[in-house]
Design a protein around this nucleic acid. Structure first.
Length: 572
RNA sequence: GCGUGCGUAGCUCAAUUGGAUAGAGCGCUGGCCUCCGAAGCCAGAGGUUGUGGGUUCGACCCCCGCCGCGCGUACCA
């Protein structure tokens, strides 16, 4: 808010001296150290140098043209030409007062909302969801929340894997080895067993392989019996996906699986071929990217030699559908980093197919899940950890701690708190790291309840709630101004002002860990404030102001946590 | 081979367009509950950012070489 005012003011001042300057790089950011000031701009140095000017002198000239006295003390030039801004307490107070009136919560709603399609989670039918799916699901949902909070229109779409060669094997297994009892107990487990069974048999038995191909062709040709089984498998799978999503409190606007696009694939391949974009090679249809360094040696396949389309074609159809249906300005895919080549090809190819499209195509990728030995993650028995098991474990661990801390609390309440804390810890662990870093799976790490974790933030929130409970119906007055005389009050207040900037940065770079860091710092500043600034014992205006600071901190914490997909609890 | 990504404290991770003294947590050492919730607070120890050069007023970040690792590399997605 103030930061934006400073930034716009600075950009104007620069333009008045340098009418053709590129002001998009003239940014005002928080200072790394409060001793320098509250906000700084360091882009003037480079600008001056590029124009062969002395950076410090240029900075002085800009300051002469700059009027930010409404918000700041004297603007200073420091070091090689940094501009340091120090906020006036009155101007901080103004922002807080308006926030108390409910005019804003330290961020502004986008005046020109964009439409953004986000593709995340995308589990495969007949396979249990496991730890590998959680990052995509959590990251994608959080990004959707962030964009919506900022006022954008978001369409979320779960592109489930409900079509493909695996169904040949599944159909053979279903017809020959189905255990109906096991299916009713745990459908995905049974389907996974069938898949593995047939998959193993294929390795050394041509006869089985032929049966698999035969069943697949029948399915693709619309064989009624196979279609019924296929639909049954999808239904059973979706039922279990929904269970997980409901526990994670994640949802989607659309769930259009790969099969939704089946009848569009042939037309696309034909069109690519007729326009000379695709060509034939070894019986398959291929697209070459000769003009691209990275893709020169990696052609994309749009049709296999057996005539079937593959996932590149499906993704082209999906993208076309999304463009036509929602006219988004951006489409975001949240998947793991191993698919980078695929999305490079897809984006390049789509642009060649539809040169007029203006969508930003964005592959938001994340790192691999590794075991504690640094190798791709598996449990001791060689299995991948199932998501529902992970969620159970998270809740159980949290329950043990809640019980230890609150032995007198009723079990229902402890269970509910454990659910919020446990699932929250799991999500937060996934969101708080840089998404591109590889992820080392560790129960203790993922379900840790101390340090920079969800419980720390939730705890800060419960302390705020606790203060307001003690008011016991007393009417809370809204302060007309904030004195902010104590250092901890001032630090906390200044941090509240930064909320909007952080949300923008999360959206710009699709990195929710920025928001986690911000909230962790906010909770930390609140903890210091809490230790050093009595609220209920304070008197008069100070008491009113501190109560308001608690209230605003609580609102930002709650909003931030909800944006990360975390629920809050008033006690824990 | 080619492409791509990574290497930061004992461990797990941050570091806001190249910006000021590289920050947290865990663990370790020590202090704080007649005081709004100690799942907390305060203090301390802990680093040649894999390595060698280069660009720059300034490099964890950009460029080049080397070492180590992950992933990808046409009929899986």
């Amino acid at each position: 808010m103030i930061q934006l005012n400073l930034q716009e003011g600075l950009q104007k001042a620069v333009l008045s001296l340098m009418p053709d300057a590129n002001i998009s790089s003239i940014l005002v950011r928080p200072c790394p150290d409060l001793k320098f000031g509250d906000y700084q701009a360091n882009a003037l140095i480079g600008l001056a140098k590029r124009n062969k000017m002395d950076p410090r002198k240029f900075a002085e000239q800009v300051i002469d043209k700059l009027d930010v006295s409404e918000f700041c003390e004297l603007v200073e030039v420091a070091g090689p030409g940094f501009l340091n801004f120090r906020l006036k307490t009155e101007s901080i107070s103004d922002v807080l007062v308006r926030a108390c009136k409910g005019e804003h919560l330290f961020f502004s709603i986008e005046k020109k909302p964009r439409t953004i399609v986000i593709d995340y989670s995308s589990p495969n039918v007949a396979k249990p969801m496991h730890v590998g799916h959680i990052r995509s699901t959590i990251l994608g949902y959080t990004l959707a929340k962030v964009f919506r909070l900022l006022g954008h229109k978001v369409v979320t779409d779960n592109h489930i894997g409900d079509w493909g060669t695996q169904f040949g094997k599944l159909l053979v297994g279903w017809k020959e080895n189905l255990d109906k009892n096991a299916l009713s107990v745990d459908a995905l487990h049974e389907m996974e067993r069938l898949y593995k069974l047939v998959n193993a048999a294929c390795d050394n038995d041509e006869v089985v392989l032929d049966r698999v191909r035969h069943e697949l062709v029948k399915l693709q040709d619309g064989d009624e019996e196979n279609l019924i089984i296929w639909r049954k498998m999808i239904e059973l799978s979706r039922h279990q996906f929904d269970e997980i999503y409901s526990r994670l409190k994640v949802d989607f606007d659309e769930t259009l699986g790969e099969s939704f696009y089946n009848d569009r694939l042939k037309r696309i391949v034909d069109e690519l071929f007729e326009r000379g974009i695709a060509e034939e090679s070894e019986g398959a249809k291929i697209v070459y990217f000769n003009e691209s360094k990275a893709l020169k040696k990696h052609p994309a396949m749009v049709q296999k030699s057996d005539g079937a389309a593959n996932y590149t074609t499906t993704d082209l159809a999906t993208l076309e559908y999304r463009q036509n249906s929602w006219q988004p300005s951006e489409v975001i895919y949240v998947t793991d980093g191993r698919q980078q080549l695929h999305f490079q090809q897809l984006f390049e190819l789509y642009t060649r197919w539809k040169p007029e499209h203006a969508m930003k195509l964005n592959h938001v990728w994340f790192g691999a899940i590794l075991g504690e030995d640094g190798k791709p993650f598996k449990t001791r028995s060689g299995e991948i950890v199932r998501l529902n098991y992970l969620l159970n474990e998270a809740e159980q661990r949290a329950f043990d701690v809640v019980t230890e801390k609150n032995p007198d609390m009723g079990e229902n309440e402890r269970r509910e708190i454990a659910r919020v804390v446990g699932i929250g810890a799991l999500k937060y662990a996934d969101l708080s790291g840089n998404r591109q870093s590889d992820y080392v799976f560790s129960w203790d790490n993922m379900l840790s309840l101390v340090g920079n974790t969800a419980p720390y933030l939730l705890y800060a929130y419960t302390r705020i709630c606790s203060i307001f409970r003690k008011l016991d119906g007393e009417i809370i007055l809204k302060p007309k101004f904030f004195t902010l005389a104590q250092a901890e009050e001032l630090t906390l207040a200044k941090h509240l002002l930064r909320f909007g900037l952080v949300l923008e940065q999360v959206g710009d770079e699709c990195r929710p860990n920025f928001l986690c860091n911000y909230l962790y710092e906010l909770a930390g500043y609140y903890a210091s404030f809490y230790e050093n600034c009595p609220v209920l014992q304070a008197e008069g205006e100070i008491r009113i102001q501190r109560l308001a600071l608690c209230d605003l901190t609580g609102k930002v914490l709650k909003t931030g946590l909800e944006t990360l997909g975390l629920e809050t609890t008033e006690r824990m």
